[in-house]
Computed example of a mutant assay.
Amino acid sequence: MKLQNKVAIVTGSTSGIGKYASFALAKAGARVTVTGRRSEKGEQVVQEIKANGGQAIFVQADMMHEESYEYLVNETLQAFGQIDILVNNAGNIIEKSFLELTVDDFQQFITLDGYAYFRMMQEVIPHMKNGGSIINVTSLAAINTIPTHSLYSFVKAGVTQMSKGVAQEFAGQNIRVNCLLPGAVDTEMVAGNPNSDFIRSLIPMQRFSTPEEQANIIVFLASDDSSYMTGSSIVADGGVRGI
């Protein structure tokens, strides 16, 4: 119960890495705010946490909308009275030829995968009175670019670099900011990719990560096990970076 008496917000936690991060954080003792657009799926995550002895609430929020950030923080404070952990995880993937990208693509993607991370940190940090841990889930694409992912890589790299600056600014307040850079993870987005077999063949471990494996790293970064880590990036990609 290394996170007992802690409160965590996990964005994009109705499925994928966010869902399993919520399970893992609750198992470690944290009270968790599950959030996303899909209320039925969010409530299912909460019920599973409660069935296993944990505490959680669901707050329906869309990270594309400005009003969601303050609302999510206020609902968490009303339910639990504090915020100690933020997992910025809500996001999407955009795979398009560079010349086919539109202004709308740029605006929508940078809002969800960049601006929302920025705003959630701004909203949460003032409430981390006794320190805290922020984990920004970005992507291996932040350091390993591939064709048709130029915009995706740009945003993920930007959040990763922003995290380092925020980490340095608030280190003196015992607020740590670290990034998790997953490679290919067996989630809904990856499972539906027609090139999934080819992607798997490029991974030295010859398999996708499970979301549970990524969630275990999030718990590590949220806990005092990583107490001297801030401004760091953990790459969990099955060995791809070594190619």
Rank of each mutant, 00 (worst) to 15 (best):
I83Q: 12
N88Y: 09
L3M: 07
G81Y: 12
V87Q: 12
E66T: 13
S39M: 10
I57F: 13
D104N: 09
K96N: 10
Y69C: 07
F106W: 15
V103F: 08
T35M: 09
A79S: 14
Y69T: 01
T11H: 12
A28K: 03
K6L: 06
V45Y: 12
Q78E: 04
A21Y: 09
V34G: 10
A61D: 08
I49H: 09
N88W: 03
F80V: 00
L77M: 15
K6N: 11
V34Y: 14
R31G: 04
A90M: 02
G16D: 05
E70V: 12
V103G: 01
F106P: 04
I83H: 13
Y20C: 01
F80D: 00
T11V: 02
E66H: 15
L3Y: 04
G81V: 08
L3P: 09
L72P: 00
D62A: 07
Q60F: 00
E100P: 00
A61F: 08
A30T: 08
Q44E: 03
I93W: 06
A51N: 13
S15I: 08
A61V: 05
E40M: 05
K6S: 04
F109Y: 15
S13Y: 06
T11L: 11
I9K: 14
A8T: 13
I83K: 14
K6G: 03
M64P: 00
D104G: 00
I85T: 12
F80G: 01
L101R: 07
M64K: 12
I93C: 07
Q55R: 06
F109K: 10
Q4Y: 12
V59M: 11
G18Y: 10
R37C: 00
R37K: 12
E43Y: 07
H65T: 07
V7W: 09
Q78W: 03
Y69I: 04
S22C: 08
Q82I: 03
N52Y: 06
G29P: 02
E40I: 14
A79M: 09
K19Y: 04
Y20W: 14
I83W: 15
E95K: 13
A56P: 00
R37V: 06
N74S: 15
